[in-house]
Write a protein that binds this DNA or RNA. Structure first.
Lengths: 205, 205
DNA sequence: TAGATTGTTAATCGATTAACAATC
DNA sequence: TAGATTGTTAATCGATTAACAATC
C-alpha cells in the first residue's frame, strides 16, 4: 500500500504553525479557530484546515483546535519531538554565531561539534565548543549518528564538504553558502541567503 | 495603461539566477543556454526562459544567453545596480555577525548603523561600527533615507521595532526573529528562521 | 437548542512544462 | 547551410479557495 504523498509546500508551512501555536500558548490560550490562527500566521482559514487535514482530524466543530494537542501533533509529524545531533562546518563569524545560538538545543537540535580547516582556528573555543579539525568530520558523524549539518564554509568549499558528509551519512543540510548544491534525491537542502532575500525585496522598492 | 504584474514567485527566483551567473562568469564563460543554466540552478529550461521572458528577450536562438548582458539586466530588474542604505537592529550574536559580514556592502547593501537598547552594549564597537542607542533609529533612518532594516531583536520586541521603523520610512525588513510580522500591504518582509528550516527537513528523515 | 466551526468537495486560480515555429 | 536554442503558446499539473453538510 502506497503512503499518500503530502505536498512539500504543506510540510514547509507546518513549522510556522507550530511556532505560532507555541507563542499563543504562552499567553495561556487553550483553544483557537482556524480563522484566528490563520490571521496570526498570514494564511487563509481554508488553507490551514486543508493542510492539517492531510494528517488527521485535530479540531472540533464549534470550538476549533486545542492548542496543546495541535502542538504535540505537529511536533510528532515534524519529528521535532526528539533530539537530533547536528554539526556546524565552518567556524567563521556565522558559524561561531550559530554555535552560540541557544535556540537550537532548545528545539531539539543538539550541536555536537563545530569544524574548520584553519590551523589557526582549530583548538580555539567558541561558547561551549572547541573548534575541531575538519579531518575528523566523517568520524564524528558516524560516531554520533549525525544526520544534519549546517554549512558555513566559503562557496568554493561547499560542494566538496557536502559530498564528503553525504558519504559519511548526513542527509540534511542547512546551507549558508550562496550556491546551489547538487545532491542525490534523498538528501534535503535548505538554503539561507540574505543577499537573495534583500534583492527579492529591493525589486519592489 | 496598467503595468503587467509579474508573479512574486518569479521575482524570488531572479536572485538565484543572478548569483549563479556571477559564479559562472568567474570561470570565464561568456555564453550559456537555458538548459545548462537551468541545470546549474536546479530548474527546468522552460521555466528559466519563461521567467526571463517577463522582462524582455535576452537570448539568441542557437547560442543562448550572453552572461554579462544577462547579469546586467538582472541587476537592473532587481535594483541591485545601486547602493542601498541598511540598518541592523539588535546587537546580539547574530546582529554582530551580520555587522561584520563583508558581502552586504559587496552587493550594494551599505550598513549605516547597528542599534541596541542595552546600556551595556551602546558605545561598544563591532567591526567598523559603534553600537548606537535604539532611540536614535528613526532619526538615522530619515537622515540616511534607509528603506531596509535587518531585525535581530527578541521576538517580544520585533513587532514594536518594525512598527516604529515603518513610521520612520522603512519598507523592507529582513527578519531574523521567529515571528510573523504584521505590516501594511506596501511593506515587504523576508524572514530567516533556521529552526523552521530544520523542522522542514527532519520531517523527511 | 442555536451558534460556531470543522473537514472536505468541487471550482477556481495560478504555475509549470511540453512542444514547436522562428531564427541566430 | 544545418544545428542549436530561443520565446511563446497551449496543455497539464498542482495549489488555493469558496462553500456547505456534519457536528460539537
Amino acid at each position: 500500500m502506497q503512503k499518500k504523498i503530502i505536498p512539500d509546500i504543506v510540510i514547509g508551512r507546518l513549522p510556522k504553525y507550530l511556532q505560532t501555536l507555541q507563542q499563543i500558548k504562552e499567553k495561556n490560550i487553550y483553544t483557537i479557530s482556524s480563522s484566528d490562527l490563520g490571521e496570526e500566521i498570514g494564511i487563509s482559514a481554508a488553507q490551514l484546515r486543508k493542510d492539517l487535514s492531510y494528517f488527521g482530524e485535530f479540531g472540533k466543530q464549534g470550538t476549533g483546535y486545542n492548542i496543546n494537542i495541535l502542538i504535540n501533533q505537529l511536533k510528532i509529524i515534524l519529528k521535532a519531538d526528539r533530539v537530533w545531533n547536528v554539526i556546524i562546518v565552518g567556524a567563521g563569524d556565522l558559524g561561531s554565531a550559530l554555535a552560540r545560538y541557544q535556540d537550537f538545543s532548545k528545539y531539539g537540535y543538539n550541536i555536537v561539534s563545530i569544524f574548520d580547516t584553519s590551523e589557526e582556528k582549530i583548538g580555539k573555543s567558541i561558547g561551549n565548543y572547541t573548534i575541531e579539525n575538519a579531518k575528523n568530520m566523517a568520524n564524528k558523524v558516524k560516531l554520533f549518528d549525525v544526520k544534519i549539518a549546517m554549512i558555513t564554509v566559503p562557496v568554493s568549499e561547499a560542494q566538496n564538504v557536502v559530498d564528503l558528509l553525504i558519504n559519511a551519512g548526513v542527509s540534511a543540510f542547512l546551507n549558508y553558502a550562496p550556491i546551489f548544491l547538487h545532491v542525490p534525491e534523498y538528501v534535503k537542502v535548505e538554503s539561507i541567503d540574505p543577499i537573495s532575500q534583500l534583492q527579492h525585496m529591493t525589486y519592489y522598492l
